[in-house]
Amino acid sequence: MLVFYQVAYAVLLAGISATLLVGRKTDNFAAVVNGAASLALALSPIAVEFGLGVGMGVDVTFGQALPLWLALAGFLHMVGMLGWYDSVWWWDHLTHTVSAGLVAALVFAGLHTLVRHSPNVQLSAAYIAVFTLLFTLGIGVLWEFVELVAREVGERIGHPPVLHHYGLRDTALDLLFDCVGALLVIALDIRTFVPVTEQRPELVEPVLVALVIGIVGGSIVLALLVAVEQRE
């Protein structure tokens, strides 16, 4: 199984790199930016492990599943950026389901770790399910605002935006499939990342609180930016 993860991860990294090169050769600025971001995100668990271990002496292991899932989400997104978002009607739904599933799986694991290692915290299965769904939906809303801001910035500087926003109907469908990704994690009881969150259980609660504040605050700020830009 370890070999499978390693081979699949290497193939996906190669795929992201290839799409980045295609974007560079075709002068697709958005594909280049998204390719670089996708590659950095896919490599981030390895970089963080190395940085914490060497720089701070903190032993943290993210395992094989997290880098692989990040690489898969990045690769699917990059294929979409090269044209499949426009030519394959269900591709955007697939990428949102996979990406939202990753977010949901991390939150789901964190909540189960919190319950297991914090005797004073009592969370029912229903609460964990609802919180996971709402958190994932919140991330989805924040992402939609990011797309809107990217569009507004692109229009202001006279440059194609690095992210595309296709209107309210597309936003509604994106959020729907964000929910699908979260519900699949909940229904299948996917606890793949519990070994990761259990390495530092004391950090789960403050991290979740900080993320919720960041999601709400970020969404409000971006919504205000869009509103101001559209009034000008």
Rank of each mutant, 00 (worst) to 15 (best):
R24D: 00
L68P: 05
P160K: 00
T171Q: 08
T61L: 09
G154E: 01
L76M: 08
H165W: 09
D189W: 12
V185K: 11
K25E: 14
L72V: 14
L76E: 04
I46S: 12
V48K: 05
L2I: 11
V194P: 06
F135L: 10
L76G: 07
V11M: 14
F131T: 07
F4S: 10
L123S: 14
E147Q: 07
L175C: 06
L123T: 03
V149I: 12
W143M: 02
H112C: 02
S118T: 15
L70S: 03
P161I: 01
R151K: 11
L211S: 06
G80T: 05
G101C: 14
G154S: 11
G181N: 14
V79T: 10
L208V: 11
V162G: 00
E155C: 01
V115E: 12
E147Y: 06
V162Y: 00
M81V: 08
S118Q: 12
L39H: 01
W143V: 02
Q64I: 05
L211P: 01
F177W: 14
L211H: 10
V141T: 12
V7W: 03
R200K: 11
A31R: 02
E152W: 00
A47F: 12
G51C: 13
V115N: 07
E155I: 00
E49Q: 09
F50L: 15
L211G: 02
W90I: 15
L173H: 08
P160R: 01
G101L: 08
G167T: 04
G51S: 08
T136P: 06
H93D: 11
G140R: 02
E152T: 06
A31P: 03
A104F: 10
F4Q: 10
L208Y: 03
L142P: 03
E229M: 05
T136K: 13
V194N: 10
D189K: 10
L52V: 05
S87R: 11
P195M: 11
S219T: 15
L12P: 04
V204A: 07
L203M: 14
F29K: 02
I220D: 11
T136S: 04
T26C: 02
T136M: 09
E147C: 03
A71H: 07
L72Y: 09
A100D: 07
F145A: 05
V216E: 02
F75S: 10
A129Y: 01
P206W: 13
V228C: 03
E205A: 15
I215R: 01
L137Q: 01
V180N: 10
V48I: 15
V48R: 02
T26Q: 09
F177N: 03
G80V: 13
K25M: 14
H164E: 12
L142A: 14
L183M: 14
A42W: 08
G158R: 00
R24S: 06
L211I: 13
